Computed example of a mutant assay.
Amino acid sequence: MATEHPSPALRAPASSRPYAKARPGYGKRTASGQRASQAADFALMPERERYVAGYVDRLPDGAAMDIKSLAKSLPLYGQMAVSSALKALGVAGHLRRVRCQTGEGEQVRWVSRTYWSRTARDNEWWDAFLTTEGSSPAPEATPAPPSTDTDPQAPVAASPQSAATSPAAPPEPAPQRTGVTSEPVAASVTHPAPTPPAVPEQRTHGAAQVAPSPAYLALAQLGRADARLALSAADCRVLEPLAAAWFSRGVDADYLTQALTAGLPAQVDSPVGLVRRRLADKLPPQLTSSTGPATAVTRGRRLLAECTECGRPGTPEALPDGLCRGCRTAASDTTPTAPAGPPAERDVHALVGQLRELTRLP
């Protein structure tokens, strides 16, 4: 007789919660010169800072480092506790928050990053590191190379576009047969395979040569940004030279769309007339040659350090320990001082007598 085991089966371990990923360009960045991870890392720090530092150290580059995302992943502490722990880690020399300028030409933006060092660094090391990071060229994101796992000798299937544009391959000659022809062969001869027409190929080839200009595309997108400025194809072709004058002065499509859609009336009777008037009246000024091209500003990657407490930007030298002057002064004012000695003994009977005299006064 089989014996029944009353104990339940072991539960599968719960999967670890995935870390929050930051937007491209933001998040955590590991500083150079890291030593190998050890069990005694952050052992001299308080429990809360050691807990937060251990979690941040295991995060990969590109993970979200804002206070809200860290507080959601750390169940033991809230946002205030995580903020205080990050401030203490910055003072200890483990992290620095910065604002970095990325992009080239007109596509320039500021991103927020947090540089992390498992080894505690002093202010001089951080100043030199951030200065080097700010002067080095910004790395460009390159697309991933195609996979090379396939056999190089295997035939590659042609895409529909390449099949449509490439010339048709000559048909293979039919094998010569002797004797009586069977019925399947006769059917194949009677119904030949249809060949694709050449007219669609010629139209596709002619349309691919003419691409719409950025000015035309920006005008065509106005209707999606605001339905009151919906333009037809003929309207876009008429207004294209006026919009091209904006692009020649260093304006991008987002700036043009915002300038044309800002402060619209409740009802627009003639979208093409309103857009023509705004393109002429709001034409941006021409930049002088002394300012230089826009790409000259982004030769090197500009970098500003941020205060870990309030987020105020500044040079790395002006933010020792990752704190601005105001936050350092506030931290020094709230530093607990040595407790004073015990209060001197007071004559209780004399004090009670004074209180009684005060109550008797009119």
Score class of each variant (00 low, 15 high):
227 A>E: 13
223 G>T: 03
149 D>K: 11
54 G>F: 01
223 G>K: 03
201 E>R: 12
251 V>N: 05
53 A>L: 03
24 P>Q: 13
275 V>T: 04
147 S>V: 06
186 A>F: 06
354 Q>I: 02
241 P>E: 04
138 A>T: 13
2 A>W: 12
309 E>R: 09
18 P>H: 04
169 A>T: 15
285 P>F: 04
98 V>T: 02
238 V>F: 10
144 A>M: 14
121 R>W: 14
50 R>V: 06
313 P>E: 08
310 C>V: 01
362 P>T: 05
289 S>C: 15
51 Y>A: 14
14 A>G: 11
180 V>W: 12
85 A>M: 05
130 L>G: 01
26 Y>G: 00
290 S>Y: 11
192 P>S: 14
198 A>E: 03
167 P>V: 02
144 A>I: 14
272 V>N: 00
296 A>I: 13
4 E>A: 10
255 Y>E: 09
17 R>A: 11
151 D>A: 02
301 R>E: 11
168 A>I: 07
45 M>H: 08
204 T>M: 03
60 P>N: 09
300 G>S: 11
171 P>H: 06
49 E>Y: 04
313 P>G: 04
344 A>K: 10
281 D>G: 03
332 S>E: 14
124 E>I: 03
362 P>F: 04
315 T>D: 07
48 R>A: 14
290 S>E: 10
8 P>H: 00
30 T>A: 10
139 P>S: 14
106 E>K: 09
239 L>M: 02
62 G>S: 06
39 A>M: 06
241 P>H: 03
273 G>K: 02
255 Y>H: 10
291 T>A: 13
43 A>D: 13
243 A>F: 02
135 S>I: 05
37 S>G: 11
55 Y>K: 13
83 S>D: 05
213 S>H: 04
191 H>Y: 09
165 T>V: 12
252 D>L: 00
219 L>V: 02
352 V>D: 15
200 P>D: 03
69 S>Q: 15
163 A>I: 11
285 P>L: 12
168 A>L: 11
200 P>C: 00
237 R>N: 09
19 Y>C: 10
179 G>W: 00
341 G>N: 09
294 A>R: 09
99 R>Q: 15
158 A>L: 12
130 L>I: 00
346 R>F: 05
65 M>N: 06
168 A>H: 04
88 A>W: 02
339 P>K: 06
308 T>A: 15
184 P>H: 02
306 E>N: 14
119 T>I: 14
2 A>L: 15
200 P>H: 00
296 A>E: 14
123 N>D: 15
15 S>N: 12
234 A>F: 06
210 V>M: 13
226 D>L: 05
360 R>A: 10
183 E>G: 07
195 T>P: 00
254 D>Q: 13
296 A>H: 10
255 Y>L: 13
212 P>I: 05
119 T>Y: 12
104 E>T: 10
153 Q>S: 12
155 P>A: 11
220 A>R: 08
183 E>T: 07
265 P>A: 03
17 R>D: 08
96 R>T: 02
33 G>M: 02
286 Q>N: 13
44 L>F: 07
343 P>N: 08
76 L>V: 10
237 R>G: 12
24 P>W: 03
215 A>S: 05
219 L>I: 03
215 A>L: 01
205 H>I: 05
